[in-house]
């Protein structure tokens, strides 16, 4: 068991940021360009050709959206262990994860009040602005029959859990490196075995093991635990994804097991590789705004694309994407200012 050098750890964190950036870009493409155009009956050559040449042959479903979410969760699991290990405040990290959900839910509610159109979850009924309270309280992602106004808010739920468990792994060390991921997998297994097949928890349970794999990779590449048991735990996590995919009828047929395999292999290969350059790039920009992109794609982007229906669809989507990215930039800057304000005040 060897401890990774500071340089290697830095390269690994950078790789996780690249993965997070890829995840955010895939999310934006999948839900805005793929799903929105499908729901409007719009045919886009770019989307059609990508499906024909990439998605179908490789078995990547839903235009890569689930792959994007899985990459985000892998990076999140990894960072939750590394960031806590680097001495960053857990509270600060929780705020950083949770704030976009609050803002996103508020924006969704405002859009609904204004008669706008937002992305609805897979099995949700009539959306109401009051649903934002349930989103902020996270109840909408756990209770049967709820209608979250922020369809992808459940990803933030997993990230919040991961932030807490990552802090436990990193701060407790020792056996926590083992029991924390295994306990999470046990929880996923028990919940998936006993919860209602039509539960809104299905997606959350199916994707949660990816965050656990991210934590396992962080422990393995950081030299905190021997490799082979971690590999076995990672295989168990993948097995849970494959099993939950079968256990919940709504999830069957989306090939999440294969997608999870791609995501985990890509993430692990990249973290073990040396990406070299440390200069800031577009990837860094996407990585740091990823949660804002997650919440604004289905709200601001979706609503704007729908509102611009008089324009050619391609132009409407370009404008909607640009607006999503702009809003993400604003969200990121505002949250950074908010989080650093007390520090500046003390100084």
């Amino acid at each position: 068991m060897s401890h990774a050098s500071a340089g290697a750890r830095h390269a690994q964190v950078r790789a996780a940021r690249v993965v997070r950036a890829a995840g955010a870009a895939l999310l934006l493409y999948s839900y805005l360009w793929g799903l929105w155009s499908d729901q409007r009956g719009v045919r886009l050559a770019l989307v059609d050709e990508t499906r024909e040449w990439v998605s179908r042959p490789l078995g990547i479903g839903e235009d890569g959206g689930p792959l994007g979410i899985m990459l985000l969760l892998l990076a999140s699991g990894f960072t939750s262990v590394r960031a806590s290990g680097a001495g960053r405040s857990v509270r600060d990290r929780l705020v950083r994860v949770y704030l976009p959900l609050v803002v996103g839910a508020a924006v969704a509610a405002a859009l609904l009040l204004a008669g706008g159109d937002v992305l609805a979850g897979r099995d949700t009924g009539e959306l109401s602005p009051a649903g934002a309270f349930g989103d902020v309280g996270l109840i909408n992602y756990l209770a049967p029959g709820a209608a979250p106004v922020l369809a992808l808010g459940w990803v933030v739920c997993v990230e919040l859990i991961t932030t807490l468990t990552g802090a436990v792994i990193s701060r407790s060390g020792g056996r926590a490196v083992w029991w924390t991921p295994l306990a999470q997998l046990a929880v996923v297994g028990v919940l998936a075995a006993f919860c209602d097949p039509s539960s809104p928890l299905a997606l959350l349970l199916c994707f949660w093991p990816l965050a656990v794999i991210g934590q396992l990779v962080a422990s393995g590449t950081g030299g905190a635990a021997p490799l082979w048991p971690l590999v076995l735990a990672g295989l168990a996590a993948w097995g849970l994804v494959a099993w939950t995919e079968r256990a919940f009828p709504d999830l069957e047929g989306w090939w999440y097991g294969l997608t999870a395999c791609y995501a985990a292999l890509f993430f692990t290969a990249l973290v073990r590789a040396d990406l070299g350059s440390t200069r800031r790039s577009v990837g860094d920009w996407f990585a740091s705004r990823s949660r804002w992109i997650l919440v604004f794609t289905g709200t601001i982007g979706w609503a704007l694309a729908s509102a611009l229906s008089a324009l050619p669809p391609l132009l409407a989507l370009v404008i909607a994407s640009a607006a999503t990215l702009l809003a993400s930039e604003c969200g990121h800057r505002a949250s950074t200012a908010l989080r650093t304000a007390p520090v500046r005040g003390q100084a």
């Binding site: 078995g59 292999l265 890509f266």
Partner: peptide, 23 residues
């Protein structure tokens, strides 16, 4: 019956992963 392209992508990722294996 398919199954060629997903296998290839998985093997590419595995090769990238195993290239750095040195245990």
């Amino acid at each position: 019956g398919g199954g060629y392209h997903n296998v290839l992508l998985m093997i590419v990722l595995l090769v990238l992963l195993f290239m750095s294996a040195n245990g």
